[in-house]
Design a protein around this nucleic acid. Structure first.
Lengths: 330, 330
DNA sequence: CTGTTAGCGCCTTCAC
DNA sequence: GTGAAGGCGCTAACAG
């Protein structure tokens, strides 16, 4: 591996000069600069970022800890993060916490040891240890998707009101018995969406019994949840708490021979890129996933620029994708 | 930031000892070890991987350069890579080349400057510069999905024969005029899948005219391609070259009022996690996406272990997911 | 079993 | 406009 010293020797200058032309950090006579550049080219020299980071104490790297990247929502989020990070000259270190508090801590610790400048993380359902670690080591961090509490930088989409609107919509269609498939207990998003559901029932003066079943945020869980809910024959509509659970719900409905929306109307929090190819086309609340990622990076960078600034919670609005699974013909 | 020197002072030992207990790299009296560990804990010391890497010349980091991670196929691949990398004690640096030769080179250069131990990359359609760079700097690399030629480590799924089988299947159903929506020109996968299509036609004694239209590997491109192909009213079946193009094809079919498989049969290279919710359920060739990622990491690690070993091309078998869009009732 | 010392490759102050 | 030298935090001989 060729080093700056080699370049310096070949160019007939000192390492200091090489460093300065490479970083454009002090005036260099153009002939000298030329010589250095030629040597670099000839030797195929590449900057050793490690060594530089050691002295500058900055890696221009941000860590991303997000689970189950096969969820298209998280994937779009990741793309947003990537795009914005690169645009600002940052590189991404990536780890998957697998939605498990222990893994989560491991991952973040590993990334932190690599001296990333900051961390973007979608916290698990029990992020206590994680938060403690981040606090103790003063790691600049922003939480995405799920919230961990005031006093931290975090960005997420609106949850409660959009779900309440979904319920409004079903109520307008005359549905009185509306079930909900809720997410993993412990996630802030789960709590908010359930709250939205309850509020929707309330303001439409619908009874609020035990029409909620947890789908644990994933397809199989939702499959089971729907099966349980449907033992109540009076239920005519369902709200699902995220995209994966919508998948499971649709499967359960199909497998029990119920058609959507004729037998059961279905509306979902979270949209799909290909929701228009489903049968029927899905009525859903779309999160601005990519934008969430972009904002997370911006928030992190602004904190890096000013470590003393007040923690902020960014809430982004959602969009209702009005299609057919709710019973409307569009 | 607390350093080893601080720990050493607090523990009343030398930095060497601290280093050795932390790395378990030489026997240390248990009392001494205890003292060190306590100091570490008390100070909340975290290893500075940067400094270590500088001296060991190894980062235990591998770079991943894969485009459009919102493609579920690539996403699964990434998960495979992540899992296997972590299992072997490696961390991932991630960059998105956006399927563009220039970006691609930038990304790989950036990652290489971070002194990753190796690189896993899904090369663009014109990877000449990339390969040159990798060669010149002797960066251990393995190519995934698309091949770049003998002499390099690469892993991909079978392409030609599975597509030929798809054609066989359509032919058995009596289809004589079968169109193909092909991918981005320049990708090895595109060439192979087209070759498989031609071979399928050939061995079924079907005329091979210009029934191929390029969908450029993405939905909108495929939408256009299908529209063009369908101006030929004699076409009764379609083969699509990847998952994104299948999306576009289904949309085009739907928007022109054609139903699948009654009006046009459709079979696809690439499966979807939710292909069973499409209408109709999709008959498709599934790649072992996750396994491809796992194997890519293994190949890379084995090259790191023995830089002199013969370059290998790993081919993984696909699976036919036989559903209904081909015209079969299952 | 433990400590001293010399770098790893670079940036940066301080001289010139 | 340029060079010399110290040090970033750590590992790895080499001594003891």
């Amino acid at each position: 591996m060729t080093t700056m010293a080699t370049v310096a020797r070949v160019a007939g200058v000192s390492v200091a000069t090489v460093s300065h032309v490479l970083n454009d950090t002090r005036p260099v006579r153009s002939a000298t600069r030329q010589a250095v550049l030629e040597a670099v080219d000839e030797l195929g020299y590449t900057h050793n970022t490690l060594a530089r980071s050691l002295v500058t104490a900055s890696t221009r790297t941000i860590a991303v800890a997000i689970s189950t990247v096969n969820n298209p929502y998280l994937t779009d989020l990741l793309q947003g993060i990537e795009a914005e990070a690169v645009a600002s000259g940052y590189t991404l270190l990536f780890g998957d916490p697998h939605d498990d508090p222990d893994h989560e801590l491991d991952v973040v610790r590993t990334l932190h040891q690599r001296r990333v400048d900051g961390v973007i993380v979608a916290p698990s359902a029990r992020p206590t240890e994680l938060v403690r670690y981040l606090d103790r080591h003063r790691v600049p961090a922003v939480f995405v998707d799920r919230l961990v509490g005031e006093g931290y930088d975090q960005v997420t989409a609106e949850s409660a009101e959009p779900v309440a609107r979904l319920v409004d919509h079903l109520a307008e269609h005359g549905h009185r018995r509306i079930g909900m498939v809720s997410g993993l207990p412990g996630l802030s998003t789960t709590a908010e969406r359930v709250a939205g559901y309850r509020q929707g029932l309330w303001r439409n003066r619908l009874v609020d019994e035990d029409l909620i079943a947890t789908g644990y945020s994933e397809p199989d869980g939702a499959y089971g949840a729907v099966s349980r809910l449907l033992s109540d024959e009076t239920i005519t509509a369902l709200v699902t708490g995220n995209n994966f659970m919508t998948i499971g719900a649709m499967r359960a409905l199909r497998d029990t021979g119920r058609s959507i929306p004729e037998d059961i109307a279905l509306v979902s929090y979270d949209d799909f890129a290909w929701a228009d190819l489903f049968s029927p086309r899905l009525t859903a609340v779309a999160q601005p996933s990519r934008e969430l990622g972009v904002r997370a990076v911006r928030l992190l960078l602004s904190r890096l620029a000013d470590p003393e600034q007040q923690p902020r919670t960014v809430r982004l609005p959602t969009t209702l994708m009005h299609r057919e699974s709710c019973g409307c013909r569009t």
